[in-house]
Every structure is written in C-alpha cells, then in structure tokens.
Measured scan of single mutants.
Amino acid sequence: MTYKLILNGKTLKGETTTEAVDAATAEKVFKQYANDNGVDGEWTYDDATKAFTVTE
C-alpha cells in the first residue's frame, strides 16, 4: 500500500511516498526520513487518505 508524507517544516516543505505493509511501518520510515532531514514537529495521520503530516 502507498502512504504519503506531507512535510510542513520550517526549512523543508514537500511530499514523499513510500510503499509499506501497514501504517505503523510507513510511520517508522517517514519519521526516520523527517529526522534525517532535520524536521521535528507535530505528527498527524489521516487513514482515509493514507497521509501523514508533520508540521514544525
């Protein structure tokens, strides 16, 4: 299944996707991606759209 990450960081904005077996796996991938790019903020998840959002 495809999951999307929407980044609303102070220095990094954009979107990326990942293929994962479930939302928990996608969340781990996205949190590592955000951490690697220096984005740390409030996380939300919308199951209807399979989209995670992180806002700094």
Rank of each mutant, 00 (worst) to 15 (best):
E56R: 04
Y33S: 02
D22E: 04
K10E: 09
T55K: 06
A20P: 01
T55V: 08
E56D: 09
T16P: 03
Y3H: 04
N35M: 15
K10C: 13
T25C: 08
T53H: 06
A26K: 00
T49E: 11
A23V: 12
E27H: 11
D47I: 09
T25G: 08
K13W: 11
N35S: 14
L7V: 13
Y45F: 07
T53S: 06
K4Y: 13
Y3C: 04
E42W: 13
Y45M: 01
A26I: 02
D47M: 07
F30K: 02
D46H: 05
V21Q: 12
D40Y: 15
D47P: 15
V29N: 06
A23G: 04
D46Y: 04
Y3A: 03
W43I: 03
V21N: 12
D40R: 13
E27A: 10
W43E: 00
N8K: 11
I6N: 04
K4C: 06
T25R: 05
A26Y: 00
N8Y: 11
T11E: 10
T25Q: 12
V39C: 04
K28P: 02
T18S: 05
Y3K: 03
T18K: 04
I6D: 03
N35Y: 15
V29R: 10
A34R: 00
D22H: 04
Q32F: 05
G41F: 03
K31H: 08
G14Q: 11
A51G: 04
G41R: 01
E42K: 10
Y3W: 06
F30C: 00
N35E: 14
K28I: 11
D47Q: 10
K28E: 09
T16G: 04
I6T: 04
T25K: 05
V29A: 08
T44D: 08
K4H: 12
T44N: 07
V54P: 00
N8P: 04
W43C: 00
T25S: 12
Y3M: 02
E15R: 06
A34N: 02
A20N: 03
D40W: 14
G14N: 08
A26R: 00
D22S: 07
A26W: 01
L5H: 01
T2F: 09
T18Y: 12
V54D: 00
K10T: 12
Y45E: 00
G38D: 07
D22K: 02
T55S: 08
A23P: 09
W43G: 00
A48I: 12
L12Y: 15
T55R: 06
M1C: 14
Q32G: 06
E27K: 09
D22F: 03
M1P: 12
N37K: 14
N35D: 11
A51S: 14
E19D: 11
D22C: 05
V39K: 02
A20L: 02
V29M: 10
K4G: 03
E15F: 13
M1E: 13
D46G: 02
K50I: 02
N8G: 04
G41M: 02
Y33E: 02
T17Q: 09
A23S: 09
D40P: 04
K13A: 08
D46M: 03
E56C: 08
I6H: 06
I6Q: 04
K50H: 12
E15H: 09
G14F: 14
K31C: 06
F52L: 00
W43H: 00
F30M: 02
E15M: 13
G38I: 04
V39T: 03
E27L: 15
T18N: 03
G14I: 14
V21C: 13
A34F: 03
Q32P: 02
G38V: 03
I6L: 06
G41W: 06
T16D: 03
T55C: 06
T53F: 07
G9F: 14
N8F: 10
N8H: 10
A26V: 02
D40S: 13
F30N: 01
E56N: 05
K4R: 12
W43A: 00
K10Y: 11
I6W: 05
N35H: 15
T18P: 01
T44W: 07
K28T: 08
M1V: 14
A51H: 06
K50A: 05
D36E: 13
G14K: 12
A20R: 02
D36T: 09
Y33G: 00
N8I: 13
I6M: 05
A48E: 13
G9C: 14
A48Q: 11
T17C: 12
L7E: 02
D36R: 09
K50N: 07
A24W: 09
E56K: 04
T49D: 08
F52I: 01
D22M: 03
T2W: 12
N37R: 14
V39H: 04
A24P: 08
V29Y: 15
E56H: 06
K31Y: 05
T53I: 08
W43F: 04
V39P: 01
D36S: 09
V29E: 07
I6R: 04
A34I: 06
N8L: 13
M1D: 14
E27C: 14
L5M: 05
Y33K: 02
A23K: 13
T53N: 04
T2Q: 10
L12E: 06
L7K: 00
L5G: 02
K13R: 12
T55F: 07
K31I: 07
E56L: 09
G9Y: 06
K28V: 09
E56Y: 10
E15A: 08
T44R: 07
V39W: 14
N35A: 15
Y33I: 07
K13L: 07
Y33A: 03
D22P: 01
E42P: 04
E42M: 11
D40C: 14
K28D: 06
T55H: 07
D46V: 04
G41N: 02
D22V: 02
A34C: 15
F52G: 01
F30I: 00
E42R: 09
W43T: 01
V29I: 15
D22T: 05
T16E: 06
D36N: 08
T17K: 07
D47W: 08
T44H: 10
T44E: 10
N35T: 14
K4P: 03
D47C: 07
G14L: 15
E42L: 12
N35C: 14
